[in-house]
Write a protein that binds this DNA or RNA. Structure first.
Lengths: 208, 208
DNA sequence: CCACGACTATGACAGTCGTCATAGTACGGC
DNA sequence: GCCGTACTATGACGACTGTCATAGTCGTGG
């Protein structure tokens, strides 16, 4: 779910204030967590008027956070499709490498400031806000669904595709955490390398 | 790093107020993140006097958080040794299953309230507090070191042991996130099952 | 021209946070 | 008994936070 500042625009290349605020919320959340993403900060980052927050998000911060998580889940899911389209000959390991590469690129060019906004929202709100927890679950589910669909398209048996998708996303999320803590992409390159043979051997029936 | 309320005691089965506060900080951080773990809450949770906080932790909250992260890293590393000792015939997949099982047990008996304190501290403080980021890196490193050492003891080639340790911890951390969001241990059981053949095939030289 | 809806502006509110200052207690050695 | 040290107690402070109330500005349709 690495996201450059230019992503998320609509077909006219512009975004309305409401969309910008959701996007900015996701950006700030993924940097310092939900608590560090103040409502005033979100408005400022989005170059949106502070007064619009209560207008567009009458549900308050919880609604804003939930929409940011939802946006991130949709974005990650859509990205899978684009990765797939960009691969000359799709393979499970190639897809996973592309997913990780997006993070490697961000970390190498923009520094290690950000993590996954869904993970950040989970950590901060899982217990306090039930709606945010379920939004995170939906985001992961959407993401995993896209990955599993892609895997099935590569000949992976349907019952294993979902499992492998979970494994891929788990490993990626964990590697993001480690990479950020070490300020080094090593963890990301490592999981890609180590998981590759397992993923590419997955078109065969499940082992044992 | 799932931790029951009874862990972390010293040889006399008791803990001093200082240790209790570090332990309580870790407990609260892993539930709702650093921001949700107020200093007053920590003191209350540890049944320790509020006035002791500034006495034992003159570095303020940042020091307390860092020590909590450090404690968690040491705890996770020590756990690996105990898992190893409890296994009749050690195997990489068996070790990973034991690590995940600790989380499964916690989630099934105590609910999905908590995650990994190191991950939580990372998400909230990686950018704001450099010292906390490096404490998290040290915690992951210590944990991975224990795992890698265990793997080498099972015949895994040294150069692969470190990589597999990173993969195991990554997958576990990610699965924790997903399991907590879904309020279901499915993600944990899935990564254990899917990773098992890869881990147990790792005593052989690296593939290709 | 006026009214109406959508949107913006801004100051205030109550609450919480981490931190600090100050004072107080307990207990050891001398 | 006294002093110094370790620890505890507590109220206050300033800096936030999310939320609300109120008023203002548009543009558009009648």
């Amino acid at each position: 779910m690495a996201v450059s500042e230019r992503d998320g625009r609509d077909e006219r290349g512009e975004r309305g204030p409401r969309e910008r605020m959701v996007f900015s919320a996701a950006q700030l959340i993924r940097r310092g967590g939900v608590a560090a993403a103040g409502m005033r900060d979100v408005a400022a980052h989005a170059s949106a008027p502070r007064g619009s927050l209560q207008h567009y998000f009458p549900g308050g911060k919880e609604q804003l956070v939930n929409e940011a998580v939802d946006w991130a889940g949709r974005y990650a899911g859509d990205r899978v499709g684009r990765f797939l389209a960009a691969m000359p000959e799709p393979s499970p390991s190639g897809l996973f490498a592309a997913m990780a590469q997006q993070w490697i690129d961000e970390y190498e060019t923009a520094g290690f400031a950000g993590g996954c906004p869904v993970a950040a929202a989970m950590v901060d709100c899982a217990e306090s806000a039930e709606s945010t927890r379920s939004a995170a679950a939906a985001a992961f589910d959407r993401w995993a669904g896209s990955v599993a669909e892609a895997l099935r398209g590569m000949g992976v048996p349907p019952e294993r595709a979902a499992s492998l998708a979970t494994l891929m996303i788990s490993a990626l999320e964990g590697a993001i955490l480690i990479a950020r803590s070490e300020r080094d992409v090593r963890a990301l390159t490592t999981v890609v390398r180590e998981l590759a043979p397992l993923l590419d051997g997955s078109a065969a029936p499940p082992p044992a």
